[in-house]
Amino acid sequence: MQGATQGAGRNRIVRFLVRRSAQAGLTLLAIAVLNFVIVHLAPGDAIDVLAGEFGGADAQYLDKLRRSYGLDQPIYVQLFQYLFNVVQLNLGFSFRNNMPVFDLIMTRLPATLLLMVASMLLSFTAGLLLGVFSARRVNTFADDAVSVLALLCYATPLFWFGLMAIVLFTVKLNLLPGNGMYTIGSNLGWFAATLDVARHLVLPACSLALFHMAVYTRLMRASMLEVYGLDYIRTARAKGLSQRRIAFRHVLPNAILPMVTMLGLQVGSLLGGAVLVETVFGWPGLGRLAFDAILQRDHNLLIGILLLGSALVVIANLITDLLYAWLDPRIEVA
């Protein structure tokens, strides 16, 4: 009996994943088309930028270059060629970096993922704890202090905070490295190397996390206060439970649901924030690659990164939905 229901549950989840993956595939294809069109609406191409960097070149040479890269084809031909390639996971060639876009992205992806995951965990956990702390002391000085802090974090520009953090922790206090992902030229064992990366991670991850921590704090506080007013919390109090148990066993598990929704939405904007943070901290990730790709009109690379970003968001939303079903028994995946 128990095994049968578990088996049925697994089947349901497999069906859910298959269907959602198909939807995700179509979504990504549509996004690929949009990205392609939008990027090509901007004037100029890689050859123009190259010509500018050479300090000018004759038109014939540029045409020849365009022909050799297929940039002389009409837009729709380029689009279909591109989609045909994308379906085969071939994201094209970055002429600037002289490397297939897919390979280029894969060399940069781990750094960005590390930064994103670290700052998501940080912002989610800190926001959750601050929100719970605040809600349990609503309308006290501590609650107000947390609200002001959250507002400050919310309003502080990311790049400014990053620069100030470098000034304070790297330049003045010399506590943490403020540039790059590892100490260049060092030859460390795996443990020391991990520690080295972790030290480099602190400032960029905190900078990136700050804004979202503020969002989570405010959301969690509001959500907790809403749940505190519900009937089943009165039931819990009438049972004689302690304030702590009510907060953590009854209010928190219900209040966390909107946070999970926000987590799925955060992935997209986190990627945007990563561009800034990676630029400020010299973090060798996708964000900086994207930034350079824009400046260099490296269209293939840019839409490759955009497509990957979209894929991350789609996957994050899929995970969010599964997480939701796990947290709230009323939601059954279907």
């Binding site: 089943y232 009165r234 009854h250 598990p253 219900n254 009323r330």
Partner: peptide, 10 residues
């Protein structure tokens, strides 16, 4: 309200 007096996630 028995419908809302029990914690839905427990």
């Amino acid at each position: 309200e028995p419908m809302t007096s029990l914690n839905p996630v427990m």
